[in-house]
Nucleic acid binder design. Structure first.
Lengths: 345, 345
DNA sequence: CTGAAAGCGCTAACAG
DNA sequence: CTGTTAGCGCTTTCAG
């Protein structure tokens, strides 16, 4: 109620005990008699006592913060993909009484020059990294020996929470196959990106399961380009130019799919009648597209939550669980096909 | 270089001085001889010394953090409007060595239940509030007597950094007038929102300047609806249904304008030939619309920067400037008309 | 101009 | 089971 300027000392006095007892009670440590515990709790409540973080952190030799890093161009994408991931981490952080310090790094990261301030000042106990980031940055993080977890990206020697890209892609393609499609194209970009590579792999596997192999002519990729709508439009052109046109296309993400769709519609083709389309990510605009887009839904907030939970484990030296926490786990989060008009006859 | 475990004491020893001298040097306080200052600086650099925030904060009786609060539905809008504002504050925060704690509050805020954790724990020295938030939350903030600054919103008794909505709207409408338009509609929603009310006012003033008053038939508003694309589509229908159709429309924001445009195009009208359109905000999709949309550009990052700067002023009790900082300033940030195809013949 | 010393509020041995 | 005490690392009077 009052100005909360109340310290542990005042609680102790009010409860008629010492400050260490108060501390023990409030942290559920040591053995305290039920009677005094009650008195302390009551006093704390009445005084509206809230421990001061800076003091506690200083004493416990930790910061109580975790950093969340992502590329600025990812954060400001018009689709709030990473925003949802952030919200997931923030939600989970509350459960562990941690604060999340969000900061962006530039696309072209340069070692010392762009190092996030909280890393330089060592004011985080752990680090979450979302999306693809430059190797230079990852090197720096590795050298720092700070607990870190990647989200929606993979890199040597770092634990990660990722989407089941391969599984999702497989299900998507199998859906097209069930719809009777024989010639299914793959639309992709930036093959360096693990997610895209895995989605391509899922495509290959789905075809393999029905005894087919990939037809190189149907694998349309702009290996150097970002998987954006603009790239999708470009690939749409290539699709149109094909001698033997496929009847369906699985796109590595929704942005590409939407770009392809735009090109197709503008050129008088019908979706799904002439070409069925499936995307990946299930972004907001997928459902609102001219022809609602079938897509693979990704549970973004869950990715964030799991990553935070995993990070917390690696931050707390729990001797009992240590041996397990040692390995560089990779947590794979399942996703789910959402069928819409773009892929059903 | 090393694990940065280095404390002020070690720097002192290395420089052959006391820790208080080190502190003075590093904070440019008190008078220190040039010679020792140099020695200290050198030692600090060699050891890679970085002061520990928790210790400094504890000692200085502050937290070194500021909170950034916005509604979750605003943060996750597909247009990264508030994301850019946040980035602006984060940028400015670095200059003041502050950390920004970002958190969202629900649309239907309930007093204690949803109070941001950092407010309960009093671990911020100041607060930034972006966009419209519930009065319940603002009441809580006022009661807390914490330095706070609103961004892109206004409320009794709180300083704010806002867009020059009225001026921007005036310029937009004047542009349409200069294009020769006589009948110009206003498209709007949620009149409770100060920004929208001001934009309407700007529309009125622009007409007034050429000796015209608003024609109620041309003021199309959904007073209860959010200013979204869907609402725009609806208003587009109302526009089409008008007996005497206007030749241009000024929309309270881009989402509305884009919705209107969609409806018009779908109904076979041409933009700008049949109806010229102007929006407000200059969001990313404005430039990419089927007919690129003329709009009023808002400098989002600047809004954030200015707000943070203003907050910092109110957080630092500078006795010399106190009298000025007392009032509840309102900082108005100019915006700029961006002319595109949707409004030129 | 510089150093000694007293905290900031909290945690964590260590006695009792 | 509870209290005493010694820090955590830094800032800041206050003497010298």
């Amino acid at each position: 109620m009052s100005t909360s300027r109340c310290t542990i000392r005042e609680v102790a006095r009010a409860a008629g005990v010492s400050i260490s007892t108060v501390s023990l009670v409030l942290n559920n440590k040591g053995k305290v008699s039920e009677a005094t515990r009650r008195r302390v709790l009551q006093a704390a409540r009445e005084l509206g006592y809230v421990p001061l973080r800076a003091a506690r952190d200083l004493s416990m030799q930790r910061t109580g913060n975790v950093g969340f890093v992502l590329r600025e161009d990812h954060f400001t994408r018009s689709e709030p993909f990473y925003t949802y991931i952030f919200l997931g981490t923030e939600f989970e952080a509350r459960l562990h009484n941690l604060y999340v310090l969000l900061t962006t790094i530039p696309d072209d990261y340069h070692k010392g020059e762009h190092t996030p301030r909280f890393l330089r000042e060592r004011s985080v106990d752990g680090l979450l990294i979302a999306g693809k980031v430059s190797d230079a940055f990852l090197d720096e993080v590795r050298a720092m020996k700070l607990p870190a977890v990647l989200i929606d990206y993979e890199a040597e020697g770092l634990p990660a929470v990722v989407i089941d890209n391969q599984g999702g892609a497989r299900v998507a393609v199998e859906h097209l196959i069930r719809q009777g499609h024989q010639r299914i194209a793959f639309i992709g970009a930036d093959l360096q990106h693990p997610s895209i590579a895995h989605r391509l792999e899922g495509y290959r596997i789905a075809l393999g399961r029905i005894g087919r192999s990939m037809d190189p002519a149907l694998v349309l990729i702009e290996p150097e380009a970002e998987p954006t709508r603009a790239t999708g439009q470009l690939l749409g052109q290539r699709l149109l130019a094909l001698a033997e046109r496929p009847t369906a296309a699985f796109c590595a993400n929704d942005a590409l799919a939407l770009g392809v769709m735009e090109t197709l519609l503008q050129n008088g083709l019908r979706v799904p009648d002439d070409i069925a389309l499936v995307g990946f990510d299930d972004v907001q605009s997928a459902a609102q597209a001219p022809v609602p887009l079938t897509s693979v839904r990704v549970f973004k907030e869950q990715l964030g939550e799991l990553a935070m939970r995993h990070l917390v484990e690696r931050m707390t030296p729990d001797p009992a669980r240590r041996p397990y926490a040692r390995g560089q786990h990779m947590i794979v989060v399942p996703c789910e096909l959402v069928v819409r008009a773009s892929s059903i006859r």
